[in-house]
């Protein structure tokens, strides 16, 4: 186990270098001069441009810039945004917001997704099952931004049930609607996955054994069935936690949540290279850690899996 984790951690290094290098190259290969863009419509003063370029190291060859970025990163320095703020400062502001939103979405996803999936799987072919299938299909088919704007304008602007935008990200009730919107698609996948998994396992021999042992129904379902059926679901949930944190760009944009997604969106618009690279670096790490945790969790859930 220990050796497995060590190997996985070592494997992360090339993955990390590869992904960040690609992002780095893409950001700096973008057409247009980001420094000149800082001046907006005003004419750029050539001397200032040169000074800024030097300050951000943009006058050096690309690979050298990447090397500087990597060496700074090892020392915990993600560089400075074009707005002159250190990227780490921006991250420490945005991360807690995104984590809060992700956790709200994640909780909704787990409770509703698994709940609906169980209901549908146990009542396969019945009305509840059909209903869950249709609703989840619709949710999967509708793009998130449509769902987000519709929810915002109906519940927020028309019915005034909620604030259309999030003013205070510490207030979990304000994060509820963005959370639901963010969770919606994953929630639909989780219910479908749970449903299929349950419907498959309910016919398994060991379920018959559990019934033959005289186990009460709640134990047959709650322990014997769920313990097996949730293995693929937990795997999905694990990787999805990473996706929720990085994938909130649209949702955070609609509801004006000042998290990672929104910050990244603005950084891309402003061609703020150091900030984009810094944010993406953070997301890459989140993904890598999440996928390692999922793989480790897998062994806890299914003893047949051994790490070598």
């Amino acid at each position: 186990m220990g050796r497995y984790i060590l190997r996985r951690l070592l494997q992360m290094i090339p993955v990390f270098i590869g992904t960040t290098l690609i992002i780095f190259l893409m950001v700096y290969a973008l057409p247009g001069d980001p420094v000149k863009a800082l001046f907006g419509d005003k004419a750029a003063d050539p001397a200032t441009v040169l000074r800024l370029k030097h300050q951000f190291g943009l006058d050096k060859p690309l690979l050298e810039q990447y090397w500087t970025y990597l060496t700074n990163l090892v020392q915990g320095d993600l560089g400075t945004s074009f707005s002159q703020r250190p990227v780490t400062d921006i991250l420490t502001d945005a991360i807690p917001v995104t984590i809060r939103l992700s956790l709200v979405a994640f909780a909704i996803e787990i409770v509703l997704g698994i709940g609906l999936g169980m209901l549908a799987g146990l009542k396969r072919g019945k009305l509840v099952d059909q209903l869950v299938l249709v609703v989840t299909l619709v949710v999967i088919a509708i793009p998130v931004f449509v769902l987000g704007y519709v929810a915002q304008s109906v519940l927020g602007n028309e019915l005034h049930l909620i604030d259309p935008t999030v003013n205070d990200s510490n207030d979990l009730s304000q994060l509820l609607l963005p959370g639901i919107v963010l969770a919606s698609v994953s929630l639909a996948y989780v219910s479908r996955l749970t449903r299929t998994s349950i419907a498959e396992n309910i016919r398994a021999d060991y379920i018959r054994t559990a019934i033959a042992k005289g186990m009460p129904k709640r134990r047959v379902v709650g322990i014997h069935l769920m313990r097996n059926s949730l293995i693929p679901v937990v795997t999905f949930l694990g990787t999805d936690l990473g996706a929720l944190m990085g994938g909130a760009i649209v949702t955070e944009g609609i509801f004006n949540v000042q998290g990672i997604g929104n910050t990244l969106y603005r950084a891309v618009l402003q061609a703020d290279g150091p900030l984009v690279v810094g944010l993406v670096t953070f997301l890459v790490v989140v993904y890598l850690v999440a996928s390692l945790l999922v793989d480790l969790l897998y062994a806890v859930l299914d003893p047949r899996i051994r790490y070598v």
Binding site: A212, G214, L301
Partner: peptide
């Protein structure tokens, strides 16, 4: 009937590998 199953009336299945729950000791 549930109370009888397992306590008074028990069953042994053919294929123990599939009849035992794979994820429980």
């Amino acid at each position: 009937r549930r109370k009888i199953r397992g306590s008074k009336l028990a069953m042994i299945f053919q294929d123990a590998l599939s009849a035992l729950n794979p994820v429980l000791s």
